[in-house]
Design a protein around this nucleic acid. Sequence first.
DNA 1: GCGACAG
DNA 2: ATCTTGTCGC
Length: 229
Amino acid sequence: MINYNELTVPQATIIQKELKDTVKITPYNGPLNYVAGADISFNKFSTTVYAGIVMMEFPSMKPVGYSLVKKEVLFPYVPGFLAFREVPALLDAWAQLPLKPDILVVDGHGIAHPRRMGIASHFGVLAQQPSIGSAKKKLFGMYEEPGMEKGSYTPLTDKQRQQLGNVLRSKSNVKPVFVSPGHLIDVPGSTEILMQCIKGYRLPEPTRLAHNAVNQFRTGIVPEGWTSL
DNA sequence: GCGACAG
DNA sequence: ATCTTGTCGC
C-alpha cells in the first residue's frame, strides 16, 4: 500500500479518481449478526492519532469488544481528503480484530463526496468490506431539511439529482445525521441498517461507542490492543 | 471573485 | 477534531 504520509493533495486526488471505479454500490444481502463502528481521536497540534473499532452484536447493539491502535500521521486534515489521514490507522485496528463485522459504520461520508470517495468508501474498498458512512455535517450535495420527528429523512443528491445518501433525523428536534453507502451496499440498505443502530442518541451506537473508546484510549483510561467485553 | 468546507 | 461552563428545553 502507498505511504499516505508522503502524498500531496493533487496526488491524493488522482488516487481517489482511480479508486472511484472500484467502489460497488449494490444491495447488501449477506448475514447481519455483527456491526462495528470506527473512529479516530487526537490531541490538537499532535501527529499521533488514536484509532478504534468497536464490535457489537446486531440488532441488540451490545458491544462485544474493541480494537485500539496508535499511529503517527503527517497528512493534514483537508476537507475531501479525510481518508488519507485516518484510513491507515483504521486498517491497523481492522487487522487486529479477531473477527470481522458484517457491516462497518465509519464516522464520515461514503459516496456523498465530491469524487464519490469519502472515508467509508475508501476504507471499504481497501478492506473489501461492506461499509456505511455516518457523518454529523454535510460535505457535499444538496437536500431539504427533514421533518423534526425521529425517523424522518430526505435525500441527499448531487446537482444532477442523483441520490448519494439520506439526511436522517435520528432523534426528534435534534440536528440530523448524514448517511451514505460506503462500499458493497446501497442507499436504501445503508439507511435502513443505520436506523436500526440508533438507540436513543443522535449518533448511531457503532460510531458513538467508537468515539467514546478512542477518547478513553487517548486519555490513558484503556490500553492499546484488542479487548473482549 | 465568493461561499462551502467530513474529522 | 479538541478545549470548556453555563444554560435552555424536553
